[in-house]
Amino acid sequence: MGISKIVMGLDDKPMWASIERGAMELQKCGECGAFRYPPAPVCPHDLSADAEWTPVSGKGTILSWVVFHKQYFEDHVPPYNSVAIELEEGPIVVSQLRGDEPEGSWIGQRVELIYAEHAGRTQHFARWLKPEAA
């Protein structure tokens, strides 16, 4: 079955180092200002290679979500969720909601990224920002 893996290409190292520090950084295009995800050597919108690793707020809105009921990895025991989050900075990232869960559909709920150990590495997870706290 195996353990889920992170993707660690040459372009990804600064992002994972920032996740290790507990404050994710993404590349911000020096040409158009757009944040991009996943990491890439050029901006997908203008192909500019000019970019600066910039911290993101970690806050965003759930775009979609699923709950797995079947086990595919040793380190993810069902039921477990994955959520697609549209960050305030723009890009859509995938994470996993931990802690309190919204009633009904999670789409449109505000979340913020938190950082925790998982399978021997640090990665981000999402924490629900209840409406009164959002």
Binding site: S4, G9, S64, Y72, S82
Partner: peptide, 24 residues
């Protein structure tokens, strides 16, 4: 090493995850 796999790999996602996300 496929760069676009940041989406799936670390979070216990399999092929059908993205289809389920589209459905949701």
């Amino acid at each position: 090493q496929q760069p676009d796999f940041q989406w799936e790999q670390p979070y216990g996602l399999a092929v059908l995850n993205v289809y389920a996300m589209v459905a949701a």
